[in-house]
């Protein structure tokens, strides 16, 4: 007889974009699905669900990660920043403005992941030239092919930060 039981839900506490959020999750729920389906933060995108595209990139405790390969239950107590948490009081984050200025997207689907990834990149401080930006942003696929504009936008945000 096959085991068909659904594992029990486990309570977790997160700080998402500065706001405390308590929820109960089945262990198989990823952070990505918790954000999108439970917290209605659909700005974080699901592009592959396997850590191959970077569309789901968020910042956990300031570090960029793929939320699709992160179990929500393992992030209990963490601070999560998603694309919805980057703008402050209606003012766009410099990266968001730079992405608009440089037309660093077309369809917009990879964009939240690109911007969160770029925010992580800026915090890491490891990219010093365009080649290093390209390499360190290569975990974020853009099928519209906006890469050169994405690099230009990040360079703009870098020069102003």
């Amino acid at each position: 007889m096959a085991d068909l039981t659904i594992p029990e839900r486990i309570p977790i506490n997160l700080v998402v974009n500065g706001e405390r959020r308590a929820l109960e999750v089945v262990p198989w729920t990823t952070l990505l699905d918790a954000l999108r389906d439970r917290l209605e933060l659909t700005g974080t995108k699901k592009g592959c669900d396997h850590g191959q595209c970077g569309a789901c990139t968020v910042l956990i405790d300031g570090r960029r990660v793929n939320s699709c390969l992160t179990l929500a239950v393992m992030t209990d107590g963490a601070e999560i920043t998603t694309i919805e948490g980057l703008a402050r009081d209606g003012a766009l984050h410099p990266l968001q403005q730079a992405f608009i200025d440089h037309d660093a997207f077309q369809c917009g689907y990879c964009t939240p992941g690109q911007i969160c990834s770029a925010a992580g990149l800026l915090a890491e401080g490891r990219a010093r030239d365009a080649d290093e930006i390209r390499e360190l942003m290569s975990g974020n696929l853009c099928r519209c092919g906006a890469y050169p504009n994405i690099v230009a936008a990040i360079e703009q945000a870098m020069s102003r930060s």
Partner: peptide
């Protein structure tokens, strides 16, 4: 190897 995000994890 991998990407910056995956290396962070």
């Amino acid at each position: 190897g991998a990407s910056a995000q995956l290396r962070n994890m």
